[in-house]
């Protein structure tokens, strides 16, 4: 019997298993994976099983991703200004900026 994954991350010597963040694809096919919460597990296989038991007991879950929390790189709130605000005033990225000739179906 082979496993899907025994990917591991540095565990802490305090005896507590590391944290894994859980992402679920629920509902319609092709919908994105959404963050559901986290679980503690010693490795990927157990993380997957725990995630399934904790977060997928109800409802239609199609797929689960578990990711060691330590490998996630996240933006910080102080980045918000430089990272995100400029996007708001770049109107040329939005379809409404462009006029199509009357009567022509663009799509």
């Amino acid at each position: 019997m082979t496993t899907t994954s025994t990917k591991v991350v540095g565990s802490n010597p305090g005896g507590e298993w590391p944290v894994w963040e859980v992402f679920l694809q629920e509902g319609e096919e092709g919908s994105p994976h959404k963050h559901a919460g986290s679980v503690h597990a010693p490795d990927g296989e157990i993380a997957l099983q725990n995630a399934r038991d904790v977060y997928a007991r109800r409802g239609k879950v199609r797929s689960i991703w578990v990711v060691p929390a330590v490998v996630i790189t996240a933006s910080s709130p102080s980045d918000a200004g430089p990272f995100f605000d400029p996007a708001q005033d770049k109107v040329y990225r939005h379809p409404q900026f462009y006029k199509a000739p009357r009567g022509v179906k663009v799509f």
Binding site: T6, V8, S11, G15, E16, W17, P42, D43, I46
Partner: peptide, 19 residues
Amino acid sequence: GAWVREAAEAYAQKQARKQ
């Protein structure tokens, strides 16, 4: 449960070394 938690960690570390 302590020995169970330790066992799972030990296994995970062995697998990591193998990989």
